[in-house]
């Protein structure tokens, strides 16, 4: 095809798509340092007013504490669940494997608002709603498939004979697990911890429904946004973005760098 001209047009087009995708992240960052109450261009003065405001707000600190507790616990739980499923899928064949895998992989295909309602009704019935634990239980179900996928991908690169070799050398299955499988999966496990934490950290629909009075950061944002335009959201948003972007980038870098290493 007519090489250069087309390449330039396509390049511009791809740039436009990326602009659309990253514009909201970019503007949230810019406006968080902007003095205007209703941000637009031309920009107002540089100001850290909104940051000062959120930093002095005890409700937001409480929400941050809640979010940290929820996302770390969720990450550990979901990664454990994901690891067990990935290993079972890697190692075993059994009769109801299809339904077994569906059981862990299906939750993300159900819209969050539906899961939110279902979780709220069910957890209230069990007397488990309205606590931080409620969010953690719900999030572990929602994020475990991500953990499963990452760890399964890693196990896919492992020679199944490695485990058998460990048994032949006299190791028990538990020892093979501890000294062969887990170390091999470690980069995937760490990536999975980061990613599931990021997902949990940003999830608001289910959290909002089941949390009762315990607010996490996204719920605080939701409540501020419902009121009125308040640039505080941009300041919180920047903090939220930085947290999740670092987690996601860390996850990708850890996973991909190991991938390359294991190939060379």
């Amino acid at each position: 095809m007519h090489g250069r001209g087309l390449n330039i047009i396509l390049g511009v087009y791809v740039a436009l798509i990326f602009t659309f995708v990253f514009a909201p992240i970019f503007f949230s960052l810019v406006f968080s340092f902007n003095s205007q109450r209703f941000p637009t261009i031309p920009l107002g003065e540089f100001s850290t007013e909104w940051y000062a405001k959120i930093l002095s707000d005890p409700d937001i600190w409480q929400a941050v504490r809640n979010s940290v507790i929820v996302s770390t616990t969720t990450a550990i739980l979901a990664t454990t669940l994901g690891f067990c499923t990935a290993y079972t899928d890697f190692r075993y064949n059994f009769r109801f494997k299809g339904p077994y895998l569906a059981l862990i992989l299906l939750p993300p295909t159900i819209p969050l608002i539906i899961m939110a309602l279902a979780m709220l009704a069910w957890l209230s019935r069990l007397g488990l709603s309205g606590q931080l634990w409620s969010i953690i239980m719900a999030h572990s179900v929602l994020t475990a498939p991500f953990a499963m996928a990452i760890i399964r991908l890693r196990l896919h690169q492992m020679d199944p004979d490695l485990e058998a070799a460990a048994w032949n050398l006299g190791g028990t299955e538990w020892q093979a697990m501890r000294h062969v499988i887990v170390p091999f999966c470690m980069p995937a496990i760490i990536s999975s911890l980061c990613l599931t934490a990021a997902v949990s950290f940003d999830e608001f629909a289910v959290a909002w429904f089941v949390s009762g009075l315990n607010k996490t950061v996204p719920i605080v944002i939701l409540e501020i946004v419902q009121g009125n335009i308040d640039p505080q959201v941009n300041a919180i948003g920047t903090f939220v973005f930085l947290t999740s972007i670092s987690l996601v980038v860390a996850a990708q870098v850890i996973f991909i760098s190991r991938q390359i290493k294991s190939h060379s």
Partner: peptide, 10 residues
């Protein structure tokens, strides 16, 4: 994996 809520507000 980043906050959809904040992006919407933006």
């Amino acid at each position: 994996f980043t906050s959809y809520l904040v992006r919407t507000f933006s």
